[in-house]
């Protein structure tokens, strides 16, 4: 059990703005919360490869094909170093992966929506990566060193992805009538799910207070969401895209944009597994994992034999 003295000293370090490193003492609960959050982040990167991967073979120019492929590759990279960062807390990648494939671990619900047209790829870059950046910019200041550093690196790449998505969306919004139609339709479909990415209202977010106390997070879900909306309203306007919320209105008093009610029923339903693509996403990931089993086994067996041979040779 963690003693009160240990907890107090730990809290003091946090309050002084110190960074916690893998070998430092930390409360069990802090470790658990971080493993949950970080692995969830890693799973999201991996599942996130699917909706975008859906358009690699159909991307409308070689340039866009390479941009998309590189983006999906970056996501695999993010997943990889987030898993590595999580392993510094004593977790094992295989167990973490199996926990979302066959257990209860979650990943971001945004990836349970389908990518129907190429405009979805642009909107994912703009809105979804835009929301992720808001979140990860905060997490780059997280009290846990390896997680903070992973987020710093991820943010740099995500900013690039967001720029690419926004640029192409701007072109579509300024393009042929068919392109404009696709662009607006995609924004209409992705807007509300993107707002849900920041998680439930602070009043319904059981983990928030604790994570803020430990400086894993430094802002609440609602603060981050508001920051995002304020930015997106301007960016949408700049490219002639409208956001599908009749209640969006600038509030002179607060200096922020007020927005309509988020469809929370839909959010909770998707979180629980009942979204348009949950089952398919899981099937695809399980299939990749199970189809890959013999490859991983072969690599291990080969390494074992090689080591044995080298041992004999010396």
């Amino acid at each position: 059990m963690d003693t009160q003295q240990q907890l107090d000293e730990f809290q003091k370090r946090i309050d002084n703005g110190e960074t916690i490193e893998p070998k430092d003492w930390m409360p069990e609960r802090y470790r658990k919360q971080l493993i949950r959050m970080m692995s969830q982040h890693a799973h999201s990167e991996i599942v996130g490869m699917l909706p975008e991967g859906n358009w690699i073979t159909r991307a409308p120019s070689l340039k866009r094909k390479m941009v998309l492929l590189a983006k999906v590759q970056d996501e695999a990279g993010h997943g990889l170093y987030l898993y590595s960062a999580t392993e510094t807390l004593g977790a094992e990648r295989r167990e973490l992966v199996e926990d979302y494939l066959y257990g209860n671990a979650k990943y971001s619900s945004i990836f349970n929506y389908p990518t129907l047209t190429y405009a979805d790829i642009c909107v994912i870059g703009w809105l979804v990566d835009g929301a992720a950046i808001v979140n990860q910019t905060m997490l780059a200041k997280s009290s846990y060193g390896p997680y903070a550093r992973a987020n710093l690196r991820i943010c740099k790449e995500e900013s690039f992805h967001k720029k690419q998505g926004y640029e192409m969306l701007a072109k579509m919004a300024d393009g042929t009538p068919e392109q404009q139609r696709m662009a607006q339709d995609a924004v209409n479909r992705w807007w509300w799910p993107t707002l849900m990415m920041f998680g439930p209202h602070d009043s319904d977010s059981p983990n928030s207070a604790e994570l803020i106390k430990w400086a894993v997070k430094t802002k609440t879900n609602d603060e981050l969401r508001q920051h995002f909306v304020d930015r997106m309203v301007m960016e949408a306007e700049a490219i002639g895209i409208s956001l599908p919320d009749p209640n969006l209105k600038y509030n002179e008093e607060t200096g922020h944009w007020d927005f309509g009610d988020i469809p929370w029923d839909e959010f909770w339903s998707v979180v629980k597994g009942d979204g348009p693509m949950n089952r398919e996403r899981m099937r695809a990931r399980r299939k990749a994992y199970e189809d890959g089993e013999w490859v991983r086994e072969a690599a291990m067996e080969y390494a074992r034999k090689k080591k044995l041979r080298e041992g004999k040779a010396s």
Binding site: I46, M49, L50, G53, I56, T57, L62, K65, M66, L69, A70, V72, Q73, A76, G77, G79, L80, Y83, A284, K287, A288, D291, G292, E293, V295, R296
Partner: peptide
């Protein structure tokens, strides 16, 4: 590129995408 997101392990997702990118870039 069809392997993206479906590779046998994360490291190979990266490697295959890398080769695919080189190939399409060369083309």
């Amino acid at each position: 590129s069809e392997w993206a997101g479906h590779g046998p392990e994360l490291e190979e997702d990266l490697a295959l995408a890398n080769v695919a990118l080189d190939m399409i870039g060369h083309a």
